[in-house]
Design a protein around this nucleic acid. Structure first.
Lengths: 103, 103
DNA sequence: ACCGCGAGCTTACGAACGGTAAGTGGATCG
DNA sequence: CGATCCACTTACCGTTCGTAAGCTCGCGGT
């Protein structure tokens, strides 16, 4: 029995996703960039509580995993990659869920 | 213009969601309970790397926020609440995204 | 050429969070 | 009565995070 239960058997997909999303601010940064490309300072100002230190760290992780791209010609402008955009439906589902609870 | 841009204006829904999901193991625990109710020890054994200490902590947070319910009559059996179940579509979207990348 | 300024990081350090392992208390079995 | 299992708890230490300061580079003014 039990030849293929989904969650974490053979392919811990959710686990690998939450190595990124399970870190603070990551989802918020992606969500902000979903609207429009933004510079370091803009992101920093747009997300209250997020410090420059962590923002730099997260942006490094996100560019390293190819969810976000940095344009050096345009004074450090950050934008979602195609990979990154494909994550947005999931994030929006979760937002809808959160909106229906409290807020 | 801009009477209601989504992300974090007036109602930081994603932010509040990721106060929970942004912590390690939380999503994995919910995902495991999505299949079937489970006891403390079962969850602990099912998720490699998750320690008893953190599991107890996460389960407290999840029951406190009413995503998970604990049945004390049945020797600490944990299960998703209706609230918790409504989160699953979002998690599954994210799993699909992760599966399509690597794995 | 020089100075000041703002933007984009980087460093330093104390506090909070997470990992490991050992311990507690209650129920069950021999 | 002792041994075992289960659901946590506690103690300890390393990693991550938050705060604040500093560094570097490009640009505008003088």
């Amino acid at each position: 029995m039990d030849t293929a239960s989904q969650p974490l058997e053979g392919c811990p997909a959710l686990a690998s996703a939450f190595e990124l999303l399970g870190k603070r601010w990551t989802a918020l940064i992606l969500d902000l960039l979903a609207e429009r490309p933004a510079r370091f300072g803009e992101i920093s100002r747009a997300i209250p509580g997020l410090s420059d230190r962590l923002l730099a760290e997260r942006l490094k992780e996100l560019t390293a995993t190819d969810l976000v791209r940095r344009d050096p010609t345009e004074n450090a402008l950050y934008d979602l990659t195609e990979e990154g955009r494909r994550l947005l439906p999931g994030l929006n589902e979760i937002r809808r869920w959160a909106q229906s609870r409290n807020c």
